[in-house]
Design a binder for these strands. Structure first.
Lengths: 221, 221
DNA sequence: AATAATTTTTAGATTAACCTAAAAAATAAA
DNA sequence: TTTATTTTTTAGGTTAATCTAAAAATTATT
């Protein structure tokens, strides 16, 4: 069935909200991410439900149907593969690619996206460490920890970020924090929950709790 | 000023029609290429004129303004660069890329298109031999002959095609006619204007006038 | 449990891009 | 130069996606 860019964006947003919770997604939550009004969302949810892509009962919130989930994952797949292309092949920085990928994710051609996947060497994650769903729409669950959740002095590897905003990514770049960076936690301060950490064996610096919350790491030792 | 996909497509179509003639473009001609009705075209032409992208007087036809020409050429540039990408990097055949490029040409990012240009090695023509406008929107005029216009037994090189339809391109592929192919004209038949020609030194075959009209060549000898 | 606050939905409009049918203008033919 | 034909425009409507304002349902608070 034909799908519009707008419908694709709604499915993508509902999918993103569903990842964070097992509860139904509220109209307001969708409205906020779609940067639109709740009334518009209500209209669209009814339409998406008619097309069979979401389960929606009025006043009860919404969730993706199996079919809707499939569509959402194919958009995520396209978005993340294009991000890899933009960084690996076009030479963009990781904080510059989100907006362009938002456009490219709507290009419709299974053949193209599978050829692109191959051309990029079947990458497992995008430049922010987010996993890329495969052709069958299966998204490997990567169980990484939030740096902010770590309670002891450990050595970790930066595997991803929980936020794609340019300001955040630029801050990480300034701190020399990129995918794969080694983090030696020296101290965790109870007072402001800031972390004193050495990055790639450099002299340790302070990282705020706010930043640590958005950094995903694998614990090495 | 903001521009919609639809507006971009109208400007592209008006540009294409303007290349073939120096006269003003008729509403009906635009309607046919846009696959829409004349009444819809009238509405859009008024809108495009208000935005300053075309010069339009009712009942007098339309032509691009300087600004409109600039926009149209930037779309053509994007379309043709993406076609090169699809063929050279993604491994598509020249008859498979038009529809995908129709989507990709609307991606908005000057940075991306200039990086893509560089990545592809600043190609001069697309996979069909059509010239690619440069960053400044200047389209090099390539003066090639239509194979059908050649009146004597000559040796030529295939430089482009005047049509991008998949059926036509697939026929050329079947005849072993690709960009750069050598054509030795053996005979031109007065009766049906068909051409008896050797392709890359193979044994000569007949090519219809209809096909020859859509083949662009450089005369070598 | 009743009331207050919040969330969500309905009702009615708006805009972009399209449509059909009819009117008007331009062009071609008698 | 009238008349006929074709082209183009106008008038009025439709659909998708949005909006504001008001009504209804849900949730939270006394």
């Amino acid at each position: 069935m034909a799908i519009s860019f707008t419908e694709e964006n709604y499915l993508k947003v509902i999918h993103r909200l569903s990842e964070a919770t097992s509860e139904d997604i509220s109209t307001n939550a969708v409205a906020e991410l779609m940067q639109t009004k709740a009334a518009s969302v209500t209209d669209m949810l009814r339409k998406l439900a008619e097309k069979g892509w979401v389960n929606y009962q009025k006043y009860q919130g919404v969730r993706l149907s199996v079919e809707g989930e499939k569509i959402a994952l194919s958009i995520v797949r396209k978005h993340r593969l294009w991000e890899v292309f933009l960084v690996d092949k076009m030479g963009f920085n990781w904080d510059e690619v989100h907006e362009i990928a938002e456009q490219l994710e709507h290009i419709e051609s299974d053949q193209l996206i599978n050829k692109l996947d191959e051309y990029l060497g079947f990458p497992k994650t995008d430049p922010h460490g987010d996993p890329i769903p495969n052709k069958e729409g299966i998204l490997p669950e990567l169980a990484y920890s939030h740096l902010s959740d770590i309670k002891a002095t450990k050595t970790c590897k930066l595997m991803g970020v929980a936020q794609d905003s340019a300001v955040f990514l630029q801050l990480l770049t300034k701190l020399n924090l990129s995918l794969g960076a080694k983090l030696d936690i020296q101290e965790i301060n109870e007072f402001d929950r800031s972390i004193f950490v050495s990055i790639n064996d450099a002299s340790p610096i302070f990282i705020s709790h706010e930043v640590a919350k958005n950094i995903l790491v694998k614990i090495l030792a």
